[in-house]
Amino acid sequence: MSHPVVRIGLVGDRSPTVRAHGAIPVALELASRAVGVSAPELTWLSTRQLDGVREDTLTPFAGIWCVPGSPYESMDGALAAIRVAREQGIPFLGTCGGFQHALIEFARHVLGLREADHAESNPDAALPLVGALSCSLVGTRGKVTLTAGSHAARAFGRTESTESYHCNYGLNASYRHVLDGAPLKITGEDEEGSVRVVELAEHPFFLATLFQPELSASTGQPHPLVQAFLAAASARAARMQSAKHTG
């Protein structure tokens, strides 16, 4: 059987001014060489086109990456894509804005916190789950400590890494408690204990980071999290191809 085509949906509003948007295809190509699979087929999915999207529009994708660049043109579109990935077991990676919106999607649709919102796009939010960081992380690098045994730690092969950021918003510390005991686990923190990684342990691969692993593409080296995401997407593509041939 031939190697399956690995289709990745990139959720976000593509712009030449967003450094991450140019870095992501390079990061995925570097990861494909490291994982030993063909370079994935990438489809950019604007958040407006995803507003009200049918579930079966996204299920053919082997993986979904919610990319930086928020506030998105349509928050509802971004949340819809994240929800499909979460509910349908599609490997998911959210970075920066993707991390922020993964938190909001989970809070609204799993925890029942319908007013959970983003302070950047809605400064008057009743429940600003995502708020301004006390210190901007634009253009910074910092150490992240990972929970032993987590998807993130397994991907890195260690429990510590130094990562690059380009963001001003993150999980509002006043609402950190809403994740206590929730399936969406905090598995990465910075040196001050602020949340930098969350994941769903029971999902094939659902992981979101406030840092931007794609920015490592400028070094020419594959990033462990991008490799892990692509490996999970490749496994899904293989299962989909097998089901097609046996169905």
Rank of each mutant, 00 (worst) to 15 (best):
V6Y: 05
G9S: 09
G9L: 00
L10G: 06
D13C: 08
R14G: 07
R14D: 10
S15N: 14
T17G: 09
V18G: 13
A23F: 07
A31I: 06
S32M: 05
A34Q: 09
V35E: 10
V35S: 13
P40T: 10
P40Q: 12
E41Y: 12
T47P: 00
R48K: 11
Q49I: 08
D51A: 15
V53G: 10
E55A: 06
D56A: 13
D56S: 15
P60S: 04
F61P: 02
A62M: 06
S70I: 01
S70T: 01
Y72E: 04
M75N: 11
D76R: 14
D76P: 11
G77H: 01
L79K: 02
A80V: 12
A81W: 04
A81I: 01
I82S: 00
V84F: 12
A85C: 03
Q88W: 12
G89L: 08
P91Q: 06
F92W: 07
L93R: 06
G94S: 04
G97M: 00
F99A: 01
Q100E: 08
Q100W: 00
Q100K: 02
A102Q: 01
A102T: 00
I104A: 06
I104Q: 05
I104P: 00
F106G: 05
F106A: 03
R108F: 03
R108Y: 01
R108C: 03
L111T: 04
R114F: 09
E115R: 15
E115W: 09
A116I: 05
A116C: 06
A119T: 04
A119S: 13
D124T: 13
A125V: 02
A126E: 15
L127C: 08
P128G: 04
L129E: 01
L129N: 04
A132F: 02
L133S: 10
C135P: 00
S136V: 07
L137Q: 10
V138H: 14
G139W: 13
T140P: 03
R141Y: 10
K143D: 15
L146I: 09
L146F: 14
T147D: 12
A148Y: 06
G149Q: 11
G149I: 01
A155H: 06
R158E: 13
T159Y: 04
E160H: 09
S161G: 12
Y165F: 15
L171S: 05
L171A: 10
N172V: 03
H177S: 12
G181H: 05
G181A: 07
L184Y: 00
I186V: 15
I186K: 08
T187Y: 00
E191G: 08
G193V: 02
V195F: 07
R196S: 01
R196W: 01
R196P: 03
V197M: 10
V198P: 04
E199V: 05
L200V: 03
L200S: 03
A201K: 10
E202K: 14
H203S: 04
F205V: 01
A208V: 02
T209K: 05
L210F: 04
L210Q: 13
Q212S: 08
S216N: 15
S216G: 10
A217M: 11
S218A: 14
G220M: 12
G220I: 11
Q221F: 07
P222I: 05
H223F: 09
P224A: 08
L225T: 11
V226W: 03
V226S: 08
V226N: 11
A228H: 05
L230T: 11
L230W: 05
A231P: 03
A233P: 08
A237H: 01
A238V: 08
A243N: 13
A243M: 14
A243L: 15
A243R: 15
A243H: 08
K244E: 14
G247K: 09
